[in-house]
Design a binder for these strands. Structure first.
Length: 420
RNA sequence: GGAGGGGUGGCAGAGCGGUUGAAUGCGCUUGUCUUGAAAACAAGUAUGGCGGUAACGUCAUCGCAGGUUCGAAUCCUGUCCCCUCCGCCA
């Protein structure tokens, strides 16, 4: 959510920034609602002050109120109720207006409205050859992936990993978690996957992206589309001890997405599915450090690709392509020779104070100072089925077997998936 | 699922219709004392809105939402969460 105070102070700044994302924010309406809000607050306060005075006097004098006082205070009470009702309407409308407005991009985010304008920051060493043996063929033949079983159990875009395929995924996840916790200083979290609507609103997924979320109506709980949602809710409504910043969390969880808006895209194999595992990094940081923290996280995700021996590239998204809650985003893509394409395996963003304002997460820079909103950053480190695809397709040998990256061997217990 | 108990400031914990934003203790900050620290003593110490350059004033907030009342932390209703016991269950 955007800061109402900041919008009122410099409306044009917000308008221009949001126009870069291809948005046409209702700034004028917001300003109008805000001045109405201020007026109503003042009107109500005058009446309330009077009522407080009279009540205090009666209490101090230990007497019964006079009939005139009762009549007058009844009237005052009615007026207060009317003003409060109108204020509530105005506040609701302000909220409804502000919640669907995305985070304005930072100044150094490149212009552009779609992925055409994204910028390749760097490409690693390594092959970008193709061999045409996509995972949906190779892995199915090896008996480690069963797309038909997935479809039969749950429908399209669900899949089953079997045997060494399942173990491989488990190994990749465990290895990545270990690198993050042991080398990058993250604390591992195992959060709930079903969350309240408020938590979903705090992260920015509601109200705007309802159609991509699974929900249980009976209990009014939502399935997380990424661990980011849960990690973002970890401190909602709380004041964080400044000495603990930056707080670094990592979690491996399934992500549940309806993918209704990507109908027809990536339909083959397991590039885009309704349920997938992902290791997610998440940080709460002091605002002045968030730029440097973002770069650090890009480094952390990159090193994983590197150690897996994958060719990867880092892309900076343009203003029109960054996610709703993001102010600046880098994607990491790995080369997969079977699908013959770059697969997005990580998206790393700074959300500035957009999420912490929504869920009222604060910190007090020093004793006695007033509270501030920390910044949040999130990044995949990394997304599993796609890394699994890349490991399979890159490891494919002439004889049809798959060679596993060395770093994973302590986790799998074997270095190869034998050809059939 | 059944029966009870409870949600008050950073924490613990009073208050149960009126001068209560809220006793007291702990914690924290500052000062006195001390070579320094500790102890002791003193003062201060919630968040947010609105007005104001500011000093300051004012309003709101005792889980949340309604209601009763001239007046609600205190009474009523609903709701969420926590705890205890019983039942069921991985």
């Amino acid at each position: 959510m955007l800061s109402l105070e900041q919008i009122v102070r410099d409306p044009e700044k917000f308008r221009t920034a949001l126009v870069r994302r291809g948005e046409d924010p209702p700034i004028d309406r917001i300003l109008e609602l805000d001045s109405r809000r201020k007026q109503l607050i003042q009107d109500g306060d005058v009446d309330r002050a009077r009522r407080n005075n009279v009540s205090k006097a009666i209490g101090a004098e230990k007497r019964k109120p006079t009939l005139e006082e009762i009549a007058e205070m009844r009237e005052t009470g009615e007026r207060i109720k009317t003003v409060e009702a109108e204020l509530a309407t105005v506040l609701t409308e302000l909220n409804v207006t502000l919640l669907p407005i995305p985070n304005p991009p930072l100044a150094d985010v490149p212009d552009g409205l779609d992925e055409e304008s994204n910028v390749i920051i760097r490409t690693s060493e390594g092959t970008t050859e193709t061999h045409g043996n996509a995972h949906w063929n190779v892995a199915t033949e090896l008996g480690i992936l069963d797309l038909e079983a997935g479809a039969s159990i749950s429908g399209a875009r669900f899949y089953v990993l079997k045997g060494k395929g399942a173990k491989l995924q488990r190994a990749i996840g465990a290895w990545m978690l270990d690198v993050h916790t042991e080398e990058h200083g993250y604390t591992e979290i195992d959060p709930p996957l079903l969350v309240r609507g408020e938590t979903m609103t705090g992260s920015g997924n509601l109200p705007k992206f309802k159609e991509n979320l699974y929900r249980d109506d009976e209990s009014d709980l939502w399935l997380v589309p990424t661990a980011e949602v849960a990690l973002n809710g970890l401190h909602q409504g709380k004041i964080i001890d400044p000495d603990t910043l930056p707080l670094k969390y990592v979690a491996q969880t399934p992500s549940f997405r309806k993918e209704q808006t990507s109908a027809g895209r990536d339909v083959r194999g397991i590039k885009r599915v309704h349920q997938f595992e992902k290791v997610e990094m998440f940080r709460y940081v002091k605002p002045e450090t968030s730029d440097e923290m973002l770069e650090e996280m890009v480094g952390e995700a990159s090193t994983l690709c590197e150690r897996l021996g994958l060719t990867y590239r880092v892309i900076q998204l343009c203003a029109g392509d960054i996610g709703f809650q993001s102010a600046k985003t880098y994607d990491i893509e790995v080369w997969s020779p079977g699908c013959a394409e770059w697969l997005e395996v990580s998206s790393i963003s700074t959300c500035t104070d957009f999420q912490t304002r929504r869920n009222n997460t604060r910190y007090r820079p020093e004793v006695g100072a007033s509270t501030k909103l920390p910044h949040t950053l999130n990044g995949s480190g990394l997304a599993l089925p796609r890394i699994w695809i890349a490991v399979i397709e890159n490891g494919l040998q002439e004889d049809g077997s798959i060679v596993i990256p060395e770093v994973l061997v302590p986790y799998t217990g074997w270095d190869r998936i034998e050809a059939k």
